[in-house]
Design a protein around this nucleic acid. Structure first.
Lengths: 151, 151
DNA sequence: ACGGCAACTGCGAATTCATTGCAATAAGTC
DNA sequence: GACTTATTGCAATGAATTCGCAGTTGCCGT
């Protein structure tokens, strides 16, 4: 349903590495090896990855790619609306495809993150909007609490 | 109303610096100058304060109090259930009295934080509990989004 | 193919927020 | 006043991320 994503919606389909590289080029960027490898890592496993995780995956194939390059590429991909990051508690931020964005419950005791369906937030979103003019971004934040096992 | 606080409920009234110092002593702690000054800072302005802000306030009266002492005292006060901290976005954590705990909306554009009444979250809390066995802690996290002025 | 401009990269150093080890100090108890 | 030990100051450490800069490389025009 019309849940707006955090970034502005991309003007093209983004469902493969090459789609994204085309978008990169269109926006004045260049297709580099580290950029392609990073995208392959993200598309191969569309889960949560910290920048450091992604660096490790990329470095398996191109050991010289520096962590700061990963950060800079992630930053640009985020500008393009291809990936988003979210903060799952105290650890590093995690990155994933904007298309697969979802909300999270994070247990403050064991640190586990659980996917939370967007429907849970529509009531909150409507009331926040109506009462405060505030549009929540349900994907960027995570909800702290205690999971079933850690009560 | 019976909104449970993040930490376990204190066994005594906590409505003044001296109440807290009594509690500190009761739990085996000692009443020190830096601890009293920190508490006075928190009670004097029960809003959001970063550890660094609090350090500055305390240091106005006792310049030798070190930032790490502030952190350690805040940690203990949190153990005692007197203060809580919350993460309002990318900056430092903010501390405030547990008694005045509330939820926050944080604008991802201008960075402003807005108080969000607890009632907004009861529906979400109930469904999270029922469907996932997850008890949200509505005070520790903040909700990102866009405020009225930054849409 | 080739040259050139600017985007990109590697690298290390800097930043920010927070924690920790340790020796010196001081609170509370007797 | 002496003693025990919680607390403190300080500097070092740590984690996550950003930045400056010089060297590299993608891509465009020819």
């Amino acid at each position: 349903m019309g849940v707006p994503l955090g970034a502005d919606a991309p003007r093209h389909d983004i469902s493969s590495v090459d789609d994204v590289l085309a978008l990169v080029r269109e926006s004045g960027g260049r297709v580099t090896n580290s950029r392609r490898l990073l995208l392959e890592a993200i598309f191969n496993d569309p889960g949560h990855h910290s920048a450091e995780d992604l660096a490790a995956i990329v470095q398996a194939r191109a050991p010289d790619v520096h962590l700061s390059t990963i950060y800079r590429n992630l930053e640009e991909l985020e500008r393009l609306g291809v990936v988003v990051h979210s903060h799952l508690g105290h650890g590093p931020a995690t990155y994933h495809l904007a298309a697969g964005a979802h909300c999270h419950f994070v247990c403050e005791h064991c640190g586990n993150a659980f996917k939370a369906p967007d429907e849970l937030f529509v009531g909150l979103a409507e009331r926040a909007k109506k009462q405060f003019g505030f549009s929540i971004d349900p994907h960027h934040f995570s909800i702290f609490g205690r999971c079933r096992n850690c009560q």
